[in-house]
Amino acid sequence: MLDLYVPLIVMFALAAAFGLFSVTAAPFIGPRRYNRAKLDAYECGIEPSPQPIAGGGRIPVAYYLTAMLFILFDIEMVFLYPFAVNIDALGLFGLVEIVLFVATVAFAYAYVWRRGGLDWS
């Protein structure tokens, strides 16, 4: 059973090797001409504002909201997959359960929708 995953690992190794090789090789293959401006963050020619230093930047709330909603729906999917695979075995009982489950999430979805959680201005 685990054998089936071996090709996956091989593929992974090859792709990773290729990627790593590329990023490592890049500085050596290309030319190097020093220019202070090149090392600045790109800001359409003006001095870069110091605000969004890596990691310290403020991120608009809407993105967090999207991320949270994604997590919720993703989790919903996590349950839908096993159900889908076993639908015949689960029968009517499973169907009722899953409809209830989806309906529950749908309530929350309706709430988020109504309260503008899905709006991007």
């Binding site: 990627g19 990023v23 293959i29 190097r32 001409r33 090149k38 090392l39 600045d40 890596a54």
Partner: peptide, 21 residues
């Protein structure tokens, strides 16, 4: 491949490096 490889000063080195991979 033969272009200059630039890494901005403010970048986070390791992550900047690993992200394309």
């Amino acid at each position: 491949a033969f272009k200059e490889d630039i890494r901005p000063v403010l970048a986070d080195k390791a992550v900047f490096f690993i992200a394309p991979v």
